[in-house]
């Protein structure tokens, strides 16, 4: 387990560098919004979700809109429902305590790194947890450093720190590529996400793009199995006019 955790932590170090980079941007924003470093640390450890924390800090103005913040976080993090579900094979045979403990430290990055390793046969729950601990540490360090330096870096955009998030997720997306069968779902996902981001409030585009793209091969498979069933029907059934049902 320890060895697996060590491997997971090491595998997440490169991603960790970018996590720290955009964490420092969040820290700077938080300092400007008047969050103390302790509040930021508590947020890091209890919420531990980058994009949601960015939106929280964005909405952070007294009197705090508690209900709106909670709802926004719920929508942005809706993808964790899908991320959690996709980890089901990895958690096969693990106890509820292990599931409940490890799932808290599942972020986009260590999930993606773990799924990529899992496809090559080299990932366990320990690997996932090690990655989570690594990311939570660098995330906290990055945000707190940004909070302290807030006043020093005047324009983080000049150093493209705001692009760190996009860059690292682009690289992570590439590692998910399985072959030509991914072309249609991926194009669909990208198009839906761009359109939804333009026309819908909040972060619905993540869920809409992700589900929309993945539905394509699912529907295809349902369609294929229906066709197969039809071919396997005994002759008697086939003698009935097929058009009858559709009429």
């Amino acid at each position: 387990m320890i060895e697996e955790m060590r491997r997971g932590a090491l595998a997440n170090l490169p991603v960790g560098a970018s996590v720290a980079a955009y964490g420092s941007v969040l820290g700077m924003l938080a300092a400007q919004k008047g969050l103390t470093w302790l509040q930021l640390l508590v947020m890091n450890l209890s919420v531990f979700a980058g994009s949601a924390q960015f939106v929280m800090v964005e909405m952070w103005a007294p009197p705090l809109p508690v209900v709106e913040i909670t709802l926004a976080v719920l929508i942005i993090n809706m993808r964790y429902l899908l991320i959690g579900a996709s980890l089901n094979p990895l958690f096969q045979g693990k106890s509820l305590v292990q599931k409940a403990g490890i799932m808290h430290l599942v972020a986009d990055e260590n999930w993606a790194v773990t799924m990529a390793a899992y496809r090559n046969g080299g990932a366990t729950t320990g690997f996932l947890l090690g990655g989570g601990i690594c990311l939570c540490s660098v995330w906290s360090m990055g945000t707190l450093l940004g909070h302290q330096l807030g006043a020093l870096v005047v324009q983080p955009e000049r150093f493209a720190l705001d692009f760190a998030f996009v860059a690292v997720f682009t690289a992570l997306t590439v590692s998910m590529w399985r072959g030509k069968s991914d072309i249609a779902p991926w194009v669909t996902a990208a198009l839906l996400a761009v359109i939804a981001e333009r026309w819908l409030p909040g972060k619905w585009y993540i869920v809409i793009g992700g589900i929309g793209g993945a539905l394509l091969p699912a529907l295809q498979s349902v369609f294929e199995s229906k066709k197969k069933n039809l071919q396997q029907l005994p002759d008697k059934a086939l003698q009935k006019p097929i058009g009858e049902k559709t009429k």
């Binding site: 997306t173 779902p185 991926w186 981001e197 809409i208 793009g209 992700g210 993945a214 539905l215």
Partner: peptide
């Protein structure tokens, strides 16, 4: 098939806009 395709499409949807 849906669950297998999902990791890639979520990441892409996250980053495309």
């Amino acid at each position: 098939r849906f669950m297998e395709t999902l990791p890639g499409t979520i990441l892409l949807a996250l980053v495309a806009p």
